[in-house]
Amino acid sequence: MIHFYLVKHRRAPGRDPAQPGFSLEVEFSLMNGTFTGVLGPSGSGKSTLLRCLAGLETPDGGFIQTDSGWWYRQGEGHPRRPQDRRVALVFQDYALFPHLSALGNVMFAQKSRTRALEWLDLVGLADRAAHFPHELSGGQKQRVALARALAREPELLLLDEPLSAVDEELREELGALILSVQRATGTTTLMVTHSRTEIGRLCDEVIELRDGRLVTARYRVP
């Protein structure tokens, strides 16, 4: 289980320190193996939450407790660095390394060539292993990014709007792939999205954020 309570303040843009900024304050528990969606309008704190969990931003308070120990606890030294957490993040723009092939990208997270090929096979891209990112379509890049993240064998998989950059037809296909891979690996997954349809189709649970606060938490999405 991953239990977190996160507080993060952000100053408003501009020089006036008196101007009220944005603040995130969320507590939630992710059960092992579940697929949780984070819903909310732009500026509601979805990405900040994701980045705090990934270790890319340091919260101002709270804690992140996982089965493998504390990733962050207020007042207890430095938070665990991203590379020391078993976490993987699939970026909205994929963030594939352009100088590496699809296989090279997956092997970045998983040294074994055989295992890396297995991950590519899982996302249906074993035949594109030697292709570089600029030779792949949007959907194929997304699959490589997913395989790369899974190759890290993370305790928590974070997906930042994974379907926002692909067209409608592909969205359905990729969504089904993400779900089947999540089910096959049993990886605890948190996905940020704008789309209620995606949440309904993919997620076991949903949390909804507004202005940095959790407004709804529903288990078993209908």
């Binding site: 990934a54 890319l56 991203p82 590379q83 993987a88 970026f91 963030a95 352009p98 890290r152």
Partner: peptide
């Protein structure tokens, strides 16, 4: 170099020096 590439490297288990060696310099 897009910031996301560095962040991707960190979340894939590489430290700062490894990220410089394997991501920054080749790019």
């Amino acid at each position: 170099i897009p910031e996301h590439l560095l962040e991707a490297s960190w979340t894939l288990g590489k430290g700062r020096l490894e990220t410089i060696g394997w991501v920054v310099l080749p790019n």
